[in-house]
Design a protein around this nucleic acid. Structure first.
Lengths: 119, 119
DNA sequence: TATGGTAGTTACCAAAAAGTAGGAATTGAG
DNA sequence: CTCAATTCCTACTTTTTGGTAACTACCATA
């Protein structure tokens, strides 16, 4: 008789999905990883994810920082300047993520995306 | 000036997240992959994911079948018997997924899961 | 005084995801 | 005729997610 809550706590898959399986987290990590300097500012990130709202980007960054996957460096200047970068932990995650992305690039040409409505 | 819709269609990350970044898909794939025979029935899968409702499991399986990641074999017997297994495409995805899972197993001990409330 | 630029936050609202409870279909066994 | 077993489906409700628009704060510059 497993307790769902306990089960959740011990299931690595649900940890992964639950923590950064949302709409924007992987895109943030990927953007940081592929940027030349490895560092991006708030509005630079927004340009990389061109239809992400300020609110969602802000929430996503806050979450990733909480998980120690990204680092947030604030420069006390005017106008404000904040730089985001991957932490060591975040960096260690990237091979797995790029593996997933490469798979998608190879195989989703084969898979019929029936859920995409062309209007 | 990128069109968000077009952008969505060409972004592999959003493909991945959008198609099987939901709460249960990875768990289904993983369960099938780690089962001895490589084949599981509906209620066997439910036992592997002990707090997934019938509705959600059913919807998840239908989605994965639509994406050609799993195969659904129906035996016309009474009571009904349906077996699910990975397709070749599904199987080709597993290294990337297990990579992610292994990362989670290693690193989420380090990460403080502040969103988990112990009551 | 007014404007601009950066990095957000907040309130409000709509849409999507997911849980619950019940029904449906099948047909051999009793 | 009824029940049981298995695999779902449907209607209903709740929860979560995400979008929009407006707002803050800072100070330098015009």
């Amino acid at each position: 008789m497993k307790d769902p809550k306990t089960d959740y706590l011990t299931c690595p898959i649900r940890h992964v999905i639950g923590k950064f399986g949302d709409k924007w987290s992987l895109l943030v990590l990927y953007s940081l990883h592929t940027s030349e300097s490895g560092v991006l500012r708030f509005n630079e990130l927004r340009k990389h994810m061109n239809d992400c709202s300020q609110k969602m980007l802000s929430a996503t960054l806050k979450n990733l920082e909480r998980l120690s996957l990204i680092h947030r460096e604030v420069y006390p200047v005017v106008p404000p300047k904040v730089e985001y970068s991957l932490t060591q932990t975040g960096l260690s995650l990237m091979p797995s993520i790029t593996s997933l992305i490469e798979w998608a690039q190879k195989h989703f040409k084969e898979v019929i995306p029936k859920d995409v409505i062309i209007d």
